[in-house]
Amino acid sequence: MDAMVRELSYAQAIQEAMAIAMDMDERVFLMGEDIGVYGGAFQVTGDLVERYGADRVIDTPISELGGAGVAVGAALTGMRPIFEFQFSDFATLAMEQIVNQAAKMRFMLGGEVSVPVVMRFPAGSGTGAAAQHSQSLEAWLGHVPGLKVIQPATPYDAKGMLLAAVADPDPVMIFEHKLLYKMKGPVPEGYYTVPIGKADICREGRDLTIVATSIMVQKALDAAAALESEGIDVEVVDLRTIRPMDKQTVIDSVKKTSRLLCVYEAVKTLGIGAEVSAMIAESEAFDYLDAPIVRLGGAETPIPYNPELEKATVPQIPDIVTAARDLAKGVR
């Protein structure tokens, strides 16, 4: 019998995944700032502390470096911590433990240990929180061998990929766009996983491929719907995992459509778009390209406070529509 499917928000889907993980495995526990009675800055942990107790839903001091290190040490010695950063920007305070310790421990010790830690990062702009609470730093961590980095874009994937992350023996970094937390979508009850390292073709099309991540997936789908009336048939690929990247799905899509547009919120240069573009340029899909690859990413500025400026800093649906139309019609 198929599991009952309900409409849940992205935040509820994550919370349900964490509850299921804790029900299934007593080694799983949650750590983070104000995740207990406060419920988390974005109410993702919600009332889990009432259901699982303060020993398994642990409020840490405001100590991102130390907290991340404690999670790494606990994972190294048999526990399965899920560590919530209050904002992904605060990863900058914990880079030492993430990059030097979690990512490299297994390698440095010749495979004698593993570090099954999950870290969750509420990311992205759009909340008026300005430059230090709005960044998209996933490519920073995607650059580090030893880490797995995922960006679920739907409630269904948020639950299934979190459960896959908890089951994974290696450190998994989850970037959750804050504007997605209230997005609703179908989520089955009970346990299921969505594999890490597999992209999702969330809309099939013939004329061009949009490779998008996180919140840009929904924006790309909206843009694709708008272009349908113009007779432009857009394929949308949700990358879902940025390390390890599902190259084949993107390559196959580009071979089919011969045009590639990359859309992501993070600063445009030296980011995911560069990686996807180079990967295609190096692949057999290069010969299929009918137009130069186009990247649509965040502006080369910090995220501003003013709401109009803030919107202008990251790709919006009309920007995607224009870029996709120009690409499909051969306008440069």
């Binding site: 470096l65 290190g69 790494v72 040490g73 606990a74 994972a75 190294l76 010695t77 310790q101 010790l109």
Partner: peptide, 28 residues
């Protein structure tokens, strides 16, 4: 690891929070 040495560390202070995490495992 077999004898309980979780590793030397190239980062000054890097092992201190990790030890606290190992102690948290012990307690939990």
């Amino acid at each position: 690891v077999g004898k309980g040495n979780l590793g030397a560390n190239g980062i000054v202070g890097g092992g201190i929070p990790i030890a606290v995490g190992a102690a948290l495992s012990s307690k939990m």
